[in-house]
Design a protein around this nucleic acid. Sequence first.
DNA 1: CTGAAAGCGCTTACAG
DNA 2: CTGAAAGCGCTTACAG
Lengths: 336, 336
Amino acid sequence: MATIDDVAKLAGVSKGTVSSVFSKKRPISQEVTERVLSVAKELGYFPNHVARSLAIKKTMIAGLKMPLSKDGRMSAFETQMISGVIKECSAHGYRLLLDTLPEHDDPTQFSLDPVDGVIMLNPRKDDPRIARLQQMGIPLVLVGRPDPLDDAVSFVDNNNTEAAYQVGEYLLKLGHRSVLFLNASSDMTVALDRKRGLADAYLQQGLVLAEEQILHYSRKLYASQIDYGYRSMMNTYGKMNYTAVITDTDRAAVGVLRAAREMGIAVPDRLSVIALSNDATLAQETTPRLTSVELSADKLGAEAARLLVEKMARPEVVKQTIIDAALVFRESCKSI
Amino acid sequence: MATIDDVAKLAGVSKGTVSSVFSKKRPISQEVTERVLSVAKELGYFPNHVARSLAIKKTMIAGLKMPLSKDGRMSAFETQMISGVIKECSAHGYRLLLDTLPEHDDPTQFSLDPVDGVIMLNPRKDDPRIARLQQMGIPLVLVGRPDPLDDAVSFVDNNNTEAAYQVGEYLLKLGHRSVLFLNASSDMTVALDRKRGLADAYLQQGLVLAEEQILHYSRKLYASQIDYGYRSMMNTYGKMNYTAVITDTDRAAVGVLRAAREMGIAVPDRLSVIALSNDATLAQETTPRLTSVELSADKLGAEAARLLVEKMARPEVVKQTIIDAALVFRESCKSI
DNA sequence: CTGAAAGCGCTTACAG
DNA sequence: CTGAAAGCGCTTACAG
């Protein structure tokens, strides 16, 4: 590859001049501009982004740290969150560095990445990466809240507890007392939040949530979310006692609906189904259409990116944003 | 941020030594290593990835060029392809730079990106970016074939024409003559390929495919793929004459199934439905389960990444890979 | 095992 | 409007 030196030499100018022709940071006469451009074209010269980044200490790249699960596949949540992040970054002229590489524990392997800021998905408890990024002085926004809470770090999160509370309150109002809750994987903080919210709704009515009717997703046990819903229904209906089922994703609800159809259980007449939704287009298109709480991952992603762009401009600001999710009433729930 | 110089000075060694402690490229005595590491920790030093990349001319980053549609959302295809690319890149220690920024036509804006290779989705006809990347000497793999074909460029593609041919052949064998084809958006080369394959199957039997029964997806007209399937059925059933419908995605098929249910049309007894599938988990979980051709976008992405990794090691090799998709028989088709 | 110095390809005050 | 030179933070022969 030709470098700025080659161009400067052949065009008979200094490299400062060539630099200015490309960056337009200072005016260059039309004659010289044309000469430089034509030499550049002849030589197949393109400015080297890495060299430029080193000189100006800016890459116009945002980093997204997102650990990949063991099987290497992305979940629907991750997928949609990325979609939201990209859309927003792109609108602000940033590109996105997707970093799914596992962390080493070798302190020698950390490096100051080629990014101007970082979005980090699902930080772990006492996540050491948070302190490290702050030490490096890299603007950071979390998706999901830090544990323990820390008002020096910006994040966006859903109101998971509140959303689950609303679901519980609604089902109780409809007269349901016994529910099957197909919760998220038990190692996720959202699973805890949701369980807590639901339990709170019960307590509010002086009732207590039956813990044994809460199931947890597991990648080992189920082939997919749909499978999780389908087989959980098949395995428990008739054995356990419930008049409503709450699912953690729309896809699990699709599985539940299918199982119900196959067993001849009318929804919502004999069974109510309600989803914590991450895919609004799917929830609207099942039969019957799903009553759900819409937690859109892409909104989380877009908002995180917005905060990050702001923080890259003004590193000192901290914002902690809770994205509200509210119940959307459709046709899959009924009072008993 | 502390630099390598700061560490070298405070530890009383040269920067070459500090460099070696972190890169492990030459042996450093245990004593010196410990001293350097402790000073680095004290100063909060982390090697600068950009500076390192400039020196070694390598970033360990793969680029993915993928134009974003007007509304900024990613399609299911894009989403899944990314998933495949990430999985494979990650397995080889590469990170992924997602580049959705639109192209300028200002020649001054092109730059030699901070990547070791590029995967480009859906190249346009006579795409100027291809020549430019080759000129820069950056390893390139296309997803979708170049137009015109060029045996100097590596790509992966589905056998779209063949897949559509198989669908046509199968439906004709079942006795269907008149079909509704919910094709992809008309500006995509896959839409042409698929139409051609289907038409070929008809010709093979001395029949001719009714062009007016081919519909095209449009982002303007439909809110989603499911909506596309649903409304197309609703608008045409009874008016047009067909005994089978072919959809371009699983989601469109979900919409078709829903419309059929609402209109009381039994599938597959009165209507056969077959999908060109990009989401196998969904196709298996509808009622009835969808007969489909499985074109998995994630396989395309993973294979593209595999080719790129190979090409970054040996830039001179060119591979053009067609990923076969074959019919999977489930329960949504029947002979008449 | 370690150091001094040149080099990677840009940008940017400073001077004219 | 343009040039000469120092600087961005690393790596890597070369020499010892």
